[in-house]
Simulated assay, not measured.
Amino acid sequence: MTEIVTSGDARFRARLVTDEYATNPRENHDHLGYVITIDTHLGHYAPVDEDGGPLAQGWGRVSWNRWKGVEIFTRWARIFHGAIVVESRPPQGAVSLWYLMPEDAQDLGLLPEAYLNAEREEYEAWAAGEAFGIIIEQSVDWRRADGRSGTLTTWAEVDSSWGYYGHCWALTEACRNLAQHAGTPELAT
């Protein structure tokens, strides 16, 4: 998939392209949250994290209860450990419990659940293949060297960056990078 955003004067453009070699953000970046994989749909999906973190044993004690296990674990983690727990059931992918321990959440201010949701959304975007790169290009006009009439316009790459997870964030960053290169905030798509 390639999506193109052009500057108002059409001198620059940003190409948003699928990053086929994006790394799993859980393996390659710092993160504060822990993830317990509940269901991989009979092995169809890989576990989110191999190590479920410090509360994984607690999940092991209640995981047998398929009707109330998530609710029991969530209450236990919140009451006895002060953890923030978010359940994830993506349309395609492993079902999981994401949690943040209080010592990791203390520096996040008033929105630790939003931080945990951002980690989850980043991973789910990667797992769904929504990883992008941004290529900034400038139009180049070519004139014939022999003096005859006619020109040719091509695009020359001037910058690129990769590793954007999620279409919305990638598109926002493409517009920001394009405006920076074009020197104007006016963009046309």
Results as ranks from 00 to 15, higher is better:
residue 7 S to G: 04
residue 8 G to L: 15
residue 8 G to N: 13
residue 10 A to Q: 09
residue 10 A to Y: 05
residue 15 R to K: 14
residue 16 L to M: 15
residue 18 T to G: 07
residue 18 T to I: 12
residue 18 T to F: 01
residue 19 D to H: 08
residue 19 D to T: 06
residue 20 E to D: 13
residue 23 T to Y: 01
residue 24 N to I: 06
residue 25 P to D: 07
residue 26 R to L: 13
residue 27 E to V: 02
residue 27 E to Q: 12
residue 30 D to S: 10
residue 32 L to Q: 08
residue 35 V to K: 01
residue 35 V to P: 00
residue 36 I to N: 03
residue 37 T to C: 01
residue 38 I to S: 00
residue 38 I to A: 01
residue 44 H to T: 10
residue 45 Y to Q: 02
residue 46 A to M: 03
residue 47 P to Q: 07
residue 48 V to E: 00
residue 52 G to T: 10
residue 52 G to D: 03
residue 52 G to H: 03
residue 53 G to N: 05
residue 53 G to D: 09
residue 55 L to S: 08
residue 59 W to P: 02
residue 60 G to E: 11
residue 61 R to Q: 14
residue 63 S to D: 05
residue 64 W to L: 12
residue 65 N to P: 09
residue 66 R to K: 15
residue 68 K to M: 15
residue 68 K to H: 13
residue 68 K to G: 14
residue 72 I to G: 00
residue 73 F to Q: 04
residue 74 T to S: 09
residue 75 R to T: 15
residue 75 R to A: 15
residue 76 W to N: 13
residue 79 I to Q: 13
residue 79 I to A: 12
residue 80 F to L: 14
residue 83 A to F: 02
residue 86 V to F: 03
residue 89 R to L: 08
residue 90 P to M: 05
residue 90 P to W: 03
residue 92 Q to C: 10
residue 93 G to C: 12
residue 93 G to D: 09
residue 93 G to F: 07
residue 94 A to V: 08
residue 97 L to N: 01
residue 98 W to Q: 02
residue 99 Y to N: 01
residue 101 M to W: 02
residue 101 M to D: 05
residue 101 M to G: 01
residue 104 D to V: 03
residue 104 D to L: 11
residue 105 A to D: 04
residue 106 Q to V: 14
residue 107 D to T: 09
residue 108 L to C: 03
residue 109 G to S: 11
residue 112 P to R: 12
residue 112 P to S: 14
residue 120 R to C: 07
residue 121 E to W: 02
residue 123 Y to Q: 06
residue 124 E to V: 09
residue 124 E to D: 15
residue 126 W to Y: 14
residue 127 A to H: 00
residue 127 A to R: 00
residue 128 A to C: 07
residue 131 A to G: 08
residue 131 A to K: 01
residue 131 A to N: 04
residue 132 F to K: 02
residue 135 I to Y: 05
residue 138 Q to M: 14
residue 141 D to L: 13
residue 141 D to K: 15
residue 141 D to A: 12
residue 142 W to F: 12
